[in-house]
Nucleic acid binder design. Sequence first.
DNA 1: TGCGGGTGTTACCCCCGGTAACACTGCCGG
DNA 2: CCGGCAGTGTTACCGGGGGTAACACCCGCA
Lengths: 224, 224
Amino acid sequence: MPTDATSPTGEPRREQLLNAADRVVQRDGPGASMNAIAAEAGITKPILYRHFGDRNGLIGALTERHTSGLLAAVRAALNEPLERRDRVEHVLDTYLAAIEARPQVYRLLTHPEPGDPTGAGNALAPALRQIADEISKAVEIQVDLGADGPLLSETWGRAITGMVLAAGDWWLEQRPCPRSRMVQALADLLWGRLAAAATLPLAVVQSTVAARPPAESPGAGPTG
Amino acid sequence: MPTDATSPTGEPRREQLLNAADRVVQRDGPGASMNAIAAEAGITKPILYRHFGDRNGLIGALTERHTSGLLAAVRAALNEPLERRDRVEHVLDTYLAAIEARPQVYRLLTHPEPGDPTGAGNALAPALRQIADEISKAVEIQVDLGADGPLLSETWGRAITGMVLAAGDWWLEQRPCPRSRMVQALADLLWGRLAAAATLPLAVVQSTVAARPPAESPGAGPTG
DNA sequence: TGCGGGTGTTACCCCCGGTAACACTGCCGG
DNA sequence: CCGGCAGTGTTACCGGGGGTAACACCCGCA
């Protein structure tokens, strides 16, 4: 008996399917199977494929939904009329707050299943690439970096995004400190605290190479 | 006709299989299929599974082989008796040189196929986690960060690793500049050049939120 | 002679992404 | 009233992925 239930055509079917997909991703994380999503929507696979072409299409659509929010938030934070340090902290806090609020969703945005072998292997998912671009743009517009401006801003956009991604993932999993502290730690890093801090006296002792045997698995030497 | 060819038992079979796997990964990138690897080794799947248990076992073994080299190089660079800035540059250069020399191998190390759903979603692959730990340790030993030392060094280890990962991937794909320039750009970032640079005058104009319509796909608003 | 361990095979399982081919409903124009 | 068309739905299948069972062969060794 087809054409039966669940709010017939109140909202365009597509949205309804995306909602189902959303629920499944919330539950199973990215990598949720098409079958599972179809089941959650109360239908079978072919319908999903009719609407979204292939899995990437579905995930893409799902991603776009949430990306817009995050991207807008980051963009707004980047243009906040604050002192630079405060602005940077604001951006960092925006991102961390987002991944904290809905981890599974942002796992989807930040760690999508590869699937696409075309030139794959990029560290940054599409959503993050957009954020990186946003940062690059902001840096180039706001900061005077001289002739190296374009290269530096592009590089830094990616670098900062990757930095926050990795640190954010770790923070989310370990929760070693409250969010504000994390923001401080990252901002401090960007503010050159690593560079400025004093050298510990015993560091000199470490200067000689520490010969430490691997001590695991009888593997042989590398290929070359 | 079993037991036929290719250096009978000269090297322990395991190594021979890993070499084959290595070749396939070089050619097909990570995500190479077990069938493909078996074929390259001139055998069939069950043998691979006998030796490595499952795919993760194989990839793990393959990874360990190469990890040791990279890890040792990074560790050595971290303990080089140089000025801090030079040492950091040395570490950055070491990593970038490695991924430049054998991209596919380091794609394997840095972007392994997820597969393992147990608490997955981490940005950093095992090899990179080791590097992050190494950096954390080095920072904690070498730099005086006061009471926040442990937290900062741990955070920074992950952050720096993620930063170099993302920037390195981008650099490898786009080749926007020679390696040395990339090293400088990243070191400059860590040295607070972003924080220290002057503010461009027109930046103030940007302080108001840039209302820019998405203009792509009739998607709806975010869920929350 | 018989046994154990290493090498190898074929054939199969289940699940996944993706695709026919077909069935039913409703609407809209001739 | 009929025919088409668009949308929704189905079952059944394909190819290929990871992973396994069952069987076959060789060889060294007590």
